[in-house]
């Protein structure tokens, strides 16, 4: 019986590859959007404007304090009642970008605040403008602290993308869920799902760990 189901599962491999493509598409788009929004919010959060800081802080708290599944439902079910009709795919990308942005915002703000104050003062004394300070002095140094957790955040993003299967986006998890209705071998089907995620995430986790090691070596050498 096991062998029969195994053959059957191998026949549905193209379906799984489509799921991989969907996971990569949702995660990739959210990664780009989330990184851009996250960096902008992070820079503002580490900035001088108190109101902006408080607003961004409250937003981060709300996103961090509620489950991603609930956020997905809110965006998918509630925005339409406000007159914004959304398909599952854009709703998933918006929810995932929003989540990623809030986490990256904290990482970036932390990285910027970790740059010694004297650097900024020296830059001001040298007559650099606010933008030049950020671009040439603060961000390049902050990137060292930012990069390892940023890659770690991308791993979380890919894993969290499995949740959007709940609103019917046909990603790897959804493909597994659909397949298991037809091939009743849960261990085998979701074993395959796990292997596919592992193939995407494991290299990224190692990249993050490698960067962390390299960064610490650099800082102890200085």
């Amino acid at each position: 019986m096991w062998g029969f189901y195994f053959d059957e599962l191998m026949h549905s491999l193209p379906f799984f590859l489509k799921g991989v493509w969907m996971t990569v598409a949702v995660s990739g788009l959210s990664l780009i959007a989330g990184t851009i929004v996250g960096f902008i919010c992070g820079i503002l959060r580490a900035g001088r404007n108190k109101i902006l800081r408080a607003v961004i802080g409250a937003w981060v708290d709300v996103i961090r304090g509620t489950p991603f599944l609930v956020q997905v439902f809110i965006i998918f079910f509630i925005l339409p009642s406000a007159g914004i009709e959304l398909e599952a795919f854009p709703a998933a990308v918006i929810a995932l970008s929003n989540l990623t942005a809030s986490f990256i915002c904290e990482i970036v703000a932390g990285g910027i605040l970790a740059v010694p104050k004297g650097q900024r003062e020296a830059a001001t004394a040298s007559g650099l403008s606010q933008y030049q300070q950020l671009r040439f002095i603060v961000l390049p140094q902050a990137m060292r602290t930012i990069m390892p957790p940023l890659v770690g955040q991308y791993v979380l993003l890919i894993k969290d993308s499995s949740v959007v299967s709940a609103i019917g986006v046909v990603d790897i998890t959804r493909v597994g869920w659909l397949t298991v209705q037809r091939i009743p071998e849960g261990l085998m089907v979701f074993g395959l799902v796990g292997i596919l995620y592992f193939a995407i995430c494991y290299p990224l986790i190692n990249l993050s760990a490698y960067m962390e090691r390299r960064m610490t070596v650099v800082s102890t050498r200085l």
């Binding site: 894993k159 299967s165 298991v180 071998e185 849960g186 261990l187 089907v189 995620y197």
Partner: peptide
């Protein structure tokens, strides 16, 4: 540890939910 950290919780949940009955 590595296999848990590299796969989403939802996939793990379904793995047990659909997998344990087959055992």
């Amino acid at each position: 540890i590595e296999s848990i950290r590299s796969t989403p919780l939802l996939a793990q949940l379904y793995f047990f939910y659909f997998g344990l009955p087959t055992l």
